[in-house]
Amino acid sequence: MSRQASFGAGLWGGALALLLTGCQAGLRPIAALNQPLSGLGDSQSPSLNSNWLALISSRPGSRAQVQLIDRLRHAPVPLPGLNRPDSLPISVAVDQRGERLALVRQRDDRSELVIHRRSLQASQVVPIEPAGVPQRVSLSADGRVLAVEVSRGGLWQVDLLELP
């Protein structure tokens, strides 16, 4: 009986190992991209597409900031006009072209939703109507639809905006 149990456990373990190995074979770290990421300190709020990775990074003693990594060059690109010394980014999303970034940030003790266009180096604050506190943002890869999680009157809601 114990031999049968042992045999069964062995079979199960082998099958599990095979399953794990098989699945792991499909999940391969992209070293060329992970290397620059490891140099950014703590990082969170990823927004990935085949060309770009947007994220929020922070190092001890310095303010968190939005980073946009060019996946072809495996390096961050400058974001003039987006990161401000008086604001703290909370959530970020980028479209497929890397042209539009949607950002929720905290500024002067309030949260605001911002759309940034890289080619114009310009940011637009989008009013939350009815009033609410934005928290997390999603931008469709085609850059045309924005979904934002908003806390409103004790309820979490999702606001949708269509961009031209």
Partner: peptide, 14 residues
């Protein structure tokens, strides 16, 4: 209550 929205790439699904 709805949280953590995510759009498909073409914006068709939420």
């Amino acid at each position: 209550s709805r949280q953590q929205p995510a759009l498909s790439g073409d914006g068709r699904l939420l």
